[in-house]
C-alpha cells in the first residue's frame, strides 16, 4: 500500500508494519493531541477535555500527532514526585466510548515508534485522512 505522500523520500523500512485505516466515523469533537506527556500538562488537560465532552454525551475522536505520539509509548509511569502521567487516562477512553483514535503515520515514523507496539489500538492515518477527519468533525481543538 502506498502509505502517503508525506513519506516520500523517507526511509520506509518501518512503514510495512503500519496499516492505513481511514477514520470510520464523523463526530462532533476532534481533539488533536500534539504534546508529549510529563514535559507539560497540555496532553493531560487535552485528554481531560475529551473525557468531559464524552461524559456529556458528545461523540469524540482523538488524533495523536507529532510529540503527542509519545502518549502511546508503553510502560509509562508516574514522575519521581508522584506526578501523574497520562497512561491511566488512556486506559479509561474505552469506558467513555471514545473509540475513534487515530495517530498520524509520519509522526510515528519520525519518532521511531512502531504501530504494533503502542498502548492503545489506534488507526494509523495518512495526511489525507487527517484532513478528512478535520473536515468531518464539527469542532476541532488542538492540545
Amino acid at each position: 500500500m502506498n502509505v502517503n505522500k508525506a513519506n516520500e523520500g523517507m526511509n520506509d523500512s518501518n512503514i510495512a508494519h503500519t496499516s492505513i485505516t481511514p477514520p470510520s466515523a464523523t463526530g462532533e469533537l476532534l481533539v488533536i493531541l500534539g504534546h508529549a506527556p510529563h514535559g507539560s500538562s497540555l496532553l493531560r488537560e487535552g485528554l481531560d477535555m475529551a473525557l468531559v465532552a464524552a461524559a456529556f454525551g458528545r461523540r469524540v475522536s482523538l488524533l495523536f500527532m507529532g510529540q503527542g505520539c509519545w502518549a502511546l509509548q508503553p510502560g509509562q509511569g508516574e514522575g519521581a514526585l508522584g506526578q501523574k502521567g497520562t497512561q491511566s487516562t488512556l486506559e479509561m477512553l474505552e469506558m467513555y466510548d471514545i473509540d475513534n483514535i487515530m495517530v498520524e503515520a509520519e509522526s510515528l515514523e519520525r519518532l521511531g515508534l512502531e504501530s504494533s507496539d503502542l498502548v492503545l489500538s489506534v488507526s494509523v492515518v495518512d495526511a489525507a485522512s487527517v484532513q478528512q477527519a478535520i473536515a468531518s468533525h464539527t469542532l476541532v481543538m488542538n492540545f
Binding site: M65, G66, E104, V130, Q131, I134, A135
Partner: peptide, 15 residues
Amino acid sequence: SQVYRQALAAMADDD
C-alpha cells in the same frame, strides 16, 4: 520547533 510539520500535514489544498 517542528510543529509546522503537523500544520502542513493537516492542511487541505485550499486551506
